[in-house]
Amino acid sequence: MAARIGGPVIDAVELSRDLIRRASVTPADAGAMQVLQNALEGLGFACRRMRFGDIENLYARYGNARPNLCFAGHTDVVPAGDAAAWTQEPFDATIVDDILIGRGAVDMKSAIAAFAAAAQSAIAGGRVAGSLSFLITGDEEGPAIHGTKMVVEALATEGEAIDHCVVGEPTSSVTFGDMIKIGRRGSVNVGIEVAGTQGHVAYPDRAANPLPVLVDLLSRLQARRLDDGFLGFQPSNLEITTIDVGNPTTNLIPSTGRARINIRFNPNHTGADLVRWIEGEAAKAAESFNGKIRLTPQISGEAFLTEPGPFTDVVAEAVRDAVGQAPELSTSGGTSDARFIRALCPVVELGLVGTTMHSVDERAPVAEIRQLQTVYERLIERYFAAFAG
C-alpha cells in the first residue's frame, strides 16, 4: 500500500537550489540543514539534530524495521574564492542553458536533493520494506572532527542499526554513471621539525645544523617503495608537501628546519604502522645529532574496501538501469566521510560527475540531477528487493 505524504512534493532541482542558496561554508550552516530537515519531515522522517562543537549534523530515519539503507552526505561547502571570476553569483543557484551553477551543485547538495526526491517516490509507492535514513554533516570539507565521525560514534554507542550506506560524493569521472567508489585509500600527514643550534657558517663546530638531518630523514622516507598495490588499489605513495627553513641570510646556520609529508595508503598498511616506521627512520637520522626531531602525525583516515558482492551489485545495477551500462568499481581519489561510516556498515559512493567540484562555476546539468534521482529510486527499489525479508 502506498504511504501518505503530508508535505509538499520535492523537486530535486528546486531543493538543490534551495540548499545552494544557503552559503554553508564550513563551519557555517546558514540554514541549509533546516531546509533539508523541513523536506524530510514532510515525508514522515523522524529528524534528530546532533550538534557537536560549532557543527550542525542531522540523522533522520523513516521506519523502524530493518534493513536500514542510509544515505550520507554533507551540506557544507568550500569557499567560493574570487566571486568576480564566476559567471554567476556563487550562491544564487542560477540555471543557465539547463545547467545549475553554484557552490555545492556537484559537491554535493544536488545528490542530497536527488536522494530526498527518490525517498519521496519510494515512500509514496510503498517500496520501503524496512527503513531509509539520512546521515548529513556540516563538517566534511573542514577538519571533519565534529561531523560524521562523531555522529557515527554516537549512533554506534546507542546501538543504532544501519545495514548499508550510499554516500553521495561526485564519483562519476567523465560521464554520469561511469564510476562508483567501493573503497578509498587512507591518509596520514606528518609534520617534521628538526631543531638544532644556530651559528655562523664559518664555525660549524659551534652549531648543530638541522638541515642535513632533515634531508637525510626525507631521503630515507623517499627511498622506500611502500608496496605494489592491493586488490584494485593503486600503490601507496609518499609525497613531500613542503620544506620550510625561512633563512634569508647566507652566512647563518639556521636553528630549525621543517617539512611535511603525506602518505596515501592502501590496505597493505595501517596509519599506525606507517607512523611507527617514520618514527624509526627519524631515530636513525637523529643518531649522533646534537638536537631533536619532533614528529606530529595525524591519521585522517584508514584505507577500506567494500568487497564486490550483493550490495555493490545492487548499486551497479541501479546505475545500469538508468544509463544503460555498468559503472566501473573504483578505489581511486581522495578521502571521504565513507572512511568513518565503514565502522557501521558496508558503504559505497555514488554521485554526479566531479570535474567542476571546488572550481569556479561549479555546475551540474539539470538532466543529470534528475538522472541521479532515477538511479537512487532504482537503488532503493533493488535494495529492499534484495535485502528485505
Rank of each mutant, 00 (worst) to 15 (best):
A154W: 05
L132N: 06
M150P: 00
R49K: 13
G53R: 04
E158R: 12
F45E: 04
A85K: 14
W86E: 11
A129F: 01
A93Q: 03
N57A: 06
D82H: 12
P143H: 00
S131P: 03
I123V: 06
A122I: 05
A65Q: 14
G126C: 09
F52Q: 12
T75Y: 10
A117T: 03
G63H: 08
I99W: 01
L132P: 03
A122C: 08
V78K: 09
E141F: 08
E89R: 13
E41N: 05
Y59P: 02
L43P: 01
D82Q: 11
A85W: 03
V77Q: 09
S131K: 06
P67T: 08
A114G: 08
E56V: 14
S121T: 14
V77H: 09
R66V: 10
F91Q: 04
F115M: 15
G138K: 00
Y62I: 01
G63N: 05
L40T: 06
A84I: 14
G81E: 07
W86S: 09
D98M: 06
G102Q: 04
R103H: 07
I95K: 07
A161S: 13
A156H: 11
G130D: 02
H74S: 12
C47W: 01
M108W: 03
G159N: 08
G147Y: 12
A124Y: 02
L100V: 11
T94Y: 00
E153I: 11
D97W: 04
L58R: 02
G63V: 03
I145F: 11
A114W: 03
G147L: 07
F134S: 07
D139T: 04
I123E: 04
C47T: 03
P67Q: 07
A83E: 15
E153N: 11
F115T: 11
D97N: 15
G44R: 09
N64V: 14
A124M: 06
N38M: 13
D163S: 12
D92V: 00
F115A: 13
T87G: 13
A144T: 08
A105W: 04
N57S: 10
A116Q: 06
A83W: 00
A119L: 08
M108Q: 13
G147E: 13
I112C: 10
A105Y: 03
F71H: 09
